[in-house]
Amino acid sequence: MFALEFPSIDNLVKWPEYLFEGTFAGFNKISLILVLAMLIPTVLFLLAKRDLVPRGIQNIVESIVEFVENQIIMAAIGPEGMKYLPLLLSIFLFVFFGNIFEVIPTFQMPANARMANPLILAVVVWVTFIGAGIKAQGFGGFMKSSLVPPGTPAALLPLMMLIEFISTFLLRPFGLAVRLFANMLAGHILLVTFGVLCITLWTLSPLVVVLPFSFGMLVALTGFEMMVAFLQAFIFALLAAVYINLSIHAH
């Protein structure tokens, strides 16, 4: 049709390993992005001064901490959730900086468009909310409150327990991981599609008139993906907080 050569999915998300090739610790672009996603916030936090009147980087860092405190912890758990601040803050920052590399030139790849990182984070959240529930209500109490919905008839109990078990202990972490993974992969494929379209139009002289529209769309989608990168980090941390809240408060 356009002689459009869309790259195969392996070319979009699989990267060659730079170091330790072939071992369990093969270091590729995803690993590099993850290391950067760890280092950038660390450097930001270390550069922040300790003034009573915040300025510059300190302002950014404190806004992030306050955002996590007010918009995630206070909104989903309440004041007793403040002890989960380090976990939720690190999840938020790690997901956000893993995502934002989607639009940073020369990287152009969200680390969370591979299943590994979302899966690890979802498992961390899974362990945390189960641990919080067992700590708050005891093992039996937690199992009862999460598996037996109030007001279930005795005849339906086995079925309801099965459904609740699947939805609480299997679908929650799966949904968390897949939500983040699929959003970032979809955004990545969308940007790649418009990028490929722009390149193809540039080489085809009669169709070059529609190139500005295609390129404008690419720019607009880049902005949109920045918003998605932030929103997905926010939603991941917010859902983690909601799950912790559901575990520590028996319904």
Partner: peptide
């Protein structure tokens, strides 16, 4: 493309654990 691969799982776990410990004990 859905299934995670071992090296990325390893690096993800390593970097997130390091980041969480840094945030909890050093940075926050």
């Amino acid at each position: 493309p859905i299934l995670p691969v071992v090296p990325e799982l390893f690096w993800s776990a390593l970097t997130f654990a390091a980041f969480f410990l840094l945030i909890k004990f050093v940075l926050l």
